[in-house]
Lab assay of single mutants.
Amino acid sequence: MAEQVALSRTQVCGILREELFQGDAFHQSDTHIFIIMGASGDLAKKKIYPTIWWLFRDGLLPENTFIVGYARSRLTVADIRKQSEPFFKATPEEKLKLEDFFARNSYVAGQYDDAASYQRLNSHMNALHLGSQANRLFYLALPPTVYEAVTKNIHESCMSQIGWNRIIVEKPFGRDLQSSDRLSNHISSLFREDQIYRIDHYLGKEMVQNLMVLRFANRIFGPIWNRDNIACVILTFKEPFGTEGRGGYFDEFGIIRDVMQNHLLQMLCLVAMEKPASTNSDDVRDEKVKVLKCISEVQANNVVLGQYVGNPDGEGEATKGYLDDPTVPRGSTTATFAAVVLYVENERWDGVPFILRCGKALNERKAEVRLQFHDVAGDIFHQQCKRNELVIRVQPNEAVYTKMMTKKPGMFFNPEESELDLTYGNRYKNVKLPDAYERLILDVFCGSQMHFVRSDELREAWRIFTPLLHQIELEKPKPIPYIYGSRGPTEADELMKRVGFQYEGTYKWVNP
């Protein structure tokens, strides 16, 4: 592979701008107003304001973009700056750019259920340069409990009458099928589907988006991507930290609602779906819905739930269990780990287990898709061969690698495990991989909904998990304890083995 010439960040961002501006969906010269509902909250200060700053800094926003914060707290732009700027990672050389960014910011205080507050917000936006005809993007960085009041008031008082209007809704989209349907029906009564952007930030990850290209742009994968060759698929999300004093919020939802029903299920769809007619948003989402419709409700015998306990040999936070978090209700049975087996009941995947695993306070930070292939028929190497695996590593250190057998150097035919490896950090030294939120917010500006969740996708996802969630809430089974920093409950490994996964433990990928 030829040595790549190092590029400056300015040059890299210039390439990104060229890609972005050559499309006809990006209205570079139009006025846009980006409204952050819930501007005083954690999500706004840690993710949304920093993301908008990065896009502005790199010249990736339309030229005439204004940012308006809205929340109940009586704040000023200076207050917003004070709480969000520490997350910007701005350099001293960017000081003038930073001043320009905050000059485009404003803030309006108001209630979430008060019509007069929204009329005041609308008047404020109209007073901005060309504000009355601007395109408006409303980001709901809010708890779902206020979605209905907020969307109703936005629709009645704050819509642009000339430009387009788009609304970005953060997960969780309800707690179960019934609450999700209620919320979807409410929002759909106010906005068209092409105006609604239900954001799952995992769909903005580079390697998640790469799944489609790997599958449908490489001839070698087509013939082997089926039940005849693939023994099982494992989708993993692991965090090495616990709730760390923020367990009160987590306890309301648990690990299945927080990660599995959305992030992991979306990745499953991209692995299992048929080739779409095109890369058009609805063509892709149509195929994802077909996959979900082929999955039956989760069966309790295919589920393992766990909850982390303190590690007596650990240090600091590792010595504390979930129930030691003062914000967690006493005696909570909320799971911090889950392993679930699903089956896609169609011709391509009949009988292939899709194993979804996620948890907190585990032994490493990792998100990946792992396809394990069947054993080689007619073994001539005296059971020395391990199964081939194709691994798409989402985070950290984005990579695609194939675990395969090669001859060990020497005189004899002794096979050993090795890999074919594409590590993004080595291959793409001159490429700026956008943060997931950067990519998705740019998608909203461009009107691309491919990486957002459609209402029928959402409904099918909740259909699969709601009976299990209701059973857990009714019966309150005690989750299996696992030690902070471990791989999780051993019962999860036993479940995976029972459905056909072979864990060798003899080879570990190392970032080159």
Rank of each mutant, 00 (worst) to 15 (best):
N105T: 11
L7C: 04
R9S: 15
N122H: 15
T51I: 08
P240E: 10
A78F: 12
L96I: 13
T31R: 15
P172I: 00
H186L: 06
M125C: 12
Y70M: 12
A25M: 15
R136F: 13
K95Q: 12
N153E: 13
S184I: 12
Q178M: 12
Y139T: 06
W225T: 03
R198F: 05
D200A: 01
K47S: 01
V213Y: 14
R74A: 15
Y139C: 04
M37Y: 12
E148T: 14
I224F: 06
L203H: 00
L140E: 03
L235W: 05
S8I: 11
T145F: 10
Q209Y: 05
A109L: 09
L142V: 11
G222E: 14
D100N: 12
A39V: 04
Q178C: 14
S123N: 15
R74C: 15
T31E: 11
D176N: 10
I255K: 04
H124N: 14
T65G: 03
Y107I: 07
K238G: 03
H27A: 13
G163S: 11
E244R: 08
P62V: 00
G174M: 01
S132G: 15
R81V: 10
T91K: 11
N165G: 13
T31K: 15
K205G: 03
H32L: 05
I33A: 08
C13W: 07
D100T: 13
E156Y: 13
N226W: 05
G222H: 10
P92F: 11
F34M: 12
Y202D: 01
N226Y: 06
E206G: 07
E94S: 07
L183Q: 01
T91W: 08
R175G: 06
R166K: 11
E206T: 06
A71R: 04
A149M: 15
L20H: 15
A134V: 15
F66A: 08
G59M: 07
A6S: 15
L183H: 02
G38F: 02
P172H: 00
I52L: 09
N229Q: 13
Q133T: 10
P144E: 04
N165V: 13
G245F: 09
F88Q: 05
H201Q: 04
L121K: 02
E244M: 15
F173W: 09
T76W: 06
Q11L: 10
S179Q: 07
S180A: 06
Q119Y: 14
D176Y: 01
A134T: 14
F237C: 13
S106H: 12
Y249W: 00
D30K: 15
Q111F: 11
A90T: 14
H155E: 12
L55E: 05
V233W: 01
T91A: 14
D251F: 03
K152M: 13
K46T: 02
M207N: 09
E94Q: 13
S29W: 11
N218M: 04
L75N: 10
P62T: 07
M207I: 07
F102P: 02
L203Y: 01
K205L: 02
R9M: 15
I230T: 05
A90V: 14
P172D: 02
Y202E: 04
S132C: 14
V150Y: 04
I52A: 10
R175D: 07
F221G: 00
G204E: 02
Y49N: 02
W225R: 02
L137C: 15
F241R: 00
H155Y: 14
A149W: 11
P223W: 06
F66S: 08
V150A: 09
Q22N: 15
A103T: 11
Q22D: 15
E193Y: 01
K171D: 02
S73C: 06
N153I: 09
L96N: 14
G247M: 06
N122L: 11
R175E: 12
R104E: 01
A90P: 08
G69E: 02
L96C: 14
I162P: 13
C232M: 07
E63K: 14
E244I: 11
P223R: 07
A90K: 07
G38V: 05
A71E: 02
A39S: 05
R192C: 10
L203C: 03
N64F: 08
F34D: 04
Q83S: 14
F191K: 03
